[in-house]
Amino acid sequence: MKNFRLAAVLAATGLLIPLLATAPAAAATTKFHAWITCDPATNAIRTGITGVGGVAANWPVTVDFKVESGYSATATTSARIPAFGTTTTVAGKSDANGDLTVAGYQRSFPISSNLFYTEKVVATVKNLSGDVLAERSASCAYDTRTTVTLTCDRDAKTVTARAEGVQYNEPQQQAMELKYEYGSVAKSSTGEPVFGTARYLRTTHYQSAVNGSFSDLGWTDTVPELQPGISLERTVWVTVRSPHTGRTLGFGTATCVWAS
């Protein structure tokens, strides 16, 4: 009998994962988007913000790029990043359409020598009078010690999410928090989206690392067979956090696809 087991796994090991979070818009028609990249290949960190509409044409602005948080960990050390709390102010100007693109701070950091690195930037756009036009945030994470899997098993008709970690050597005063978020999108045979579930908090678990390692079963769902011609792509995001310090210690994501 043919085995239809689809262990379509995207592991977080060695993966650069950009995370984006957006604050409320200054105007309903304005779409601002902050970004940050933490590139282990070049050990470079870059930031910026873009805005579509909502700013007058050829309008001068200033943008404050603040390092809101940041954390790095090696096999033997862990600490808040040195740039924490610093702010870089950059002048910018919208184009003739009122669109805005401003590059923020850039700096070097030995990301690739760490097991885990994360940084969050908050970008605040102001006019020359100091009025805030928009505020957006973005985060990035580089993680080589957290592995997240999502397994679609057609034979068993189950979907299983799991997170595992190694070299979590930071002393912990209490169990680590594992936040599982989940989302899905169904597509027709032509690739068109049919329906889906937006990313949401599915469950939260607590685990203590033993000799630096942990293994956690997020959940196993029993799922019905799909309608003919439909495929369902499921994605899980896992954030490992210290409840004591509030720091993010790890992150991973995985996707599996179940086709009818």
Rank of each mutant, 00 (worst) to 15 (best):
A21D: 09
I81P: 04
T87Y: 00
R241E: 08
G229V: 10
R241M: 13
A175Q: 13
M176Y: 01
V63N: 03
A8P: 08
A175V: 07
A198D: 11
A44S: 15
N127Q: 04
I36D: 02
G54Y: 03
R136H: 13
S112M: 05
T248S: 05
A175H: 09
Y71H: 11
K2D: 08
C152I: 04
R241V: 13
K120D: 02
R154F: 05
A73I: 03
V122P: 03
T13F: 02
A21K: 12
N3F: 03
P110N: 10
Q174T: 14
T30E: 10
R5S: 12
E181P: 00
P171V: 11
A91W: 06
T50K: 14
G250A: 02
E135F: 01
T118V: 03
L232A: 00
A209E: 01
L226I: 04
T144L: 07
F84R: 11
N97Y: 01
Y180W: 15
Q174F: 02
R145C: 09
P228W: 01
K157N: 14
V159C: 02
N3G: 11
K126W: 06
A23R: 15
Q172F: 03
T160W: 04
I81R: 09
S208L: 13
R234L: 06
A41E: 08
Y105S: 08
K2H: 10
E119Y: 00
G14W: 04
S108N: 14
E192T: 15
G250C: 06
G218C: 06
E170W: 04
V238W: 00
T76K: 12
V55S: 03
T151Q: 07
S69A: 15
A186E: 06
A163W: 01
A156D: 08
I45K: 04
V159K: 07
E181H: 06
G54W: 02
E135A: 14
N114A: 08
P171W: 04
K2R: 13
A21I: 14
W237H: 12
V185P: 01
P82C: 07
Y105P: 10
L217F: 00
I45R: 05
Y117A: 09
G191D: 00
V61A: 05
P171T: 10
Q106R: 14
A79V: 10
T77K: 15
R247E: 15
D143R: 08
T62L: 03
F65T: 06
T62K: 15
R162W: 06
T89K: 13
A209M: 05
G246R: 11
N211T: 12
I17Y: 02
Y206L: 07
N169D: 07
